[in-house]
Design a protein around this nucleic acid. Structure first.
Length: 487
RNA sequence: GCCGCCAUCGUCUAGUGGCCUAGGACGCUGGGUUUUCAUCCCAGAAAUCACGGGUUCGACUCCCGUUGGCGGUACCA
């Protein structure tokens, strides 16, 4: 049987990093077994629907290289792939369930439901629907229907049944059906709820494996019940409820409010998609060889989903951005210069000098952890520095102005074009003659040229700036020092 | 409240009864290389394996309980 996995996001805002985390498993697993990875848009919540969110999901998947084989714009033989375009299908199965007595019309008002809930909570009972409408006669139902009283369709959950969820991560989990609420299947606006939509579509789209967050584990028995009632018992997919991504500060799930949760954050900060994926995989799964850095392909190769035991941790994992940063740096350092240049150029969309960064790449490669680090590190190469007296004051040389002046004179007479070796020799000699440490002299030149304490290697930076520009900047630094009455 | 999942350094984890006086990685601290920073190399601190009972010759590993964390408990997904 062909392996078919799916991601079913709802277009309610920008995509969450946990969605990508899930997609990664779907994608890798489908690829490993030559199966198909499907994207289905679950746009059944009209209140939370956000215009354009769907496109952002597509873009994110593309950025991570996790594009589906089937989906809304990709096509496929099991479409349509948007739930809003499948309403009649859910209706059809809902009717079937009603006829079988496995579901029923419910005309209860929101107010009654609210009252019921508060009452149950007061009595310290689990808030559940009381099956009030299950006993309605055919005539009563017809009457209410024809006078267009709003209704929902509820699942008629039987009492005192054991429902076993076989999960590849958690193992077999037994639920008591008496604890399960009569879930709404079709809302009063005619749209299905998640539970109805997911079961019908997963069945119709022939989904074989479901990877989703553990927050879904408690509602899985409802889904299993639905498969059973619809006569699809043999088609229940294999479930793998993945550990939740927890907030680094430790207050529950990684939430959208906290920034790190948005896929966009990683793009904007200059994280590499492959590094993010590696990180995501690594926090819940360990490579059998013990390596922490591995490609998606390597993950795919080593990842196993044994019949009842998946090699994935089942506890929630804190999302430690510092480790991601380190990992991202590792990827940057291992990347060929040409590739890094390309990535940097793609990242620096508005950078005025992005076409001229190639020679810088080898200089900054070991110094950046994220693509965005490039900007503060190299700014001085593209624009004149703004000098700050406190930075000059950090230098170990006492008579700054005097020494810099001598440097200035030496620079003017140095043989052009400057060569790194010659530059170094000149100022080492200079330092020795002046009784200064070579490092201190170089640091002074660095600050004069860049205005910064930290820069890429000095000799190479100087070369990139060019002789005239360097001399001019040293002169400007002198003027600055004088105007601040520095000796 | 009820139901469920989980429990090893600050964080991510290795560990499936003896190899564990618990290993690795990030981070942190110190040192070395270096024109700054970074890279790289070396060293170090850091977990009474949540707690309490069992089972066993022997438990981080198995069982029970407690505690704690997390998730669910919607006409949201």
């Amino acid at each position: 049987m062909e392996v078919r996995t799916r991601i079913a996001p709802s277009p309610t805002g920008y995509p969450h990093i946990a969605t990508i985390y899930q997609v990664m498993f779907d994608f890798v697993f489908a690829k490993k077994y030559n199966g198909k990875f499907i994207l289905r848009i679950e746009d059944t919540d009209r209140a939370r629907f956000v215009e354009g969110a769907e496109q952002v999901i597509f873009d994110s998947l593309k950025w991570f290289g996790l594009e589906p084989d089937e989906g809304p714009v990709w096509g496929g033989e099991y479409g349509p792939y948007r739930q809003s375009e499948r309403l009649d299908i859910y209706q059809k199965y809902a009717k079937q369930l009603i006829e079988q007595g496995n579901a029923y019309y419910c005309f209860c008002s929101k107010e009654r439901l609210e009252e019921l809930r508060t009452k149950q909570q007061k009595e310290k009972k689990a808030p559940m629907y009381d099956k009030n409408c299950v006993t309605l006669s055919k005539e009563e139902i017809e009457k209410k229907l024809s006078s267009s009283i709003p209704y929902v369709i509820r699942l008629n959950v039987p009492k005192n049944q054991k429902i076993i969820v076989s999960d590849v991560v958690a193992g077999d989990v037994v639920f008591d059906s008496s604890q399960i609420d009569d879930q709404v299947l079709i809302k009063s606006d005619g749209f299905p709820t998640y539970h109805m939509g997911v079961v019908v579509d997963d069945y119709l789209m022939k989904i074989t494996h479901v990877f989703r967050g553990t927050e879904w584990l408690p509602s899985t028995p409802k889904h299993i019940l639905l498969y059973k009632f619809l006569g699809w018992e043999d088609s229940v997919p294999k479930y793998a409820h993945l550990p939740l991504l927890l907030d680094p500060e430790g207050a529950g799930k990684l939430s959208k409010r906290k920034g790190h949760a948005s896929v966009d954050f990683y793009k904007q900060e200059g994280y590499l998609p492959e590094a993010v994926l590696n990180f995501l995989a690594n926090i819940v799964w360990n490579h059998p060889d013990g390596q922490e850095i591995f490609t998606l392909k390597e993950f795919e190769k080593a990842f196993e989903l044994e019949p009842f035991k998946m090699e994935v941790k089942s506890q929630g994992a804190r999302f430690d951005i510092r480790k991601l940063e380190w990992m991202n740096g590792e990827y940057i350092r291992k990347m060929p210069d040409e590739e890094l240049t390309k990535r940097l150029q793609e990242f620096l969309v508005d950078h005025p000098a992005k076409d001229r960064i190639a020679p810088l790449v080898p200089l900054i490669k070991e110094r950046i952890k994220k693509l965005s680090d490039f900007i503060p590190l190299t700014d001085f190469l593209f624009e004149k520095p703004e000098y700050d007296l406190s930075i000059f004051e950090k230098l170990k040389i006492k008579n700054l102005n005097e020494v810099l002046n001598k440097v200035f004179e030496d620079l003017k007479v140095m043989e052009k074009p400057w060569k790194s070796e010659n530059f170094e020799k000149t100022f080492r000699n200079f330092a020795e003659k002046s009784g200064l440490k070579a490092g201190d002299v170089f640091q002074l030149i660095r600050v004069a040229v860049s205005g910064q304490i930290v820069t890429p290697p000095l000799f190479e930076s100087v070369k990139i700036l060019g002789e005239d520009e360097v001399i001019e900047r040293v002169n400007e630094a002198l003027v600055f020092l004088k105007s601040n009455r520095v000796a």
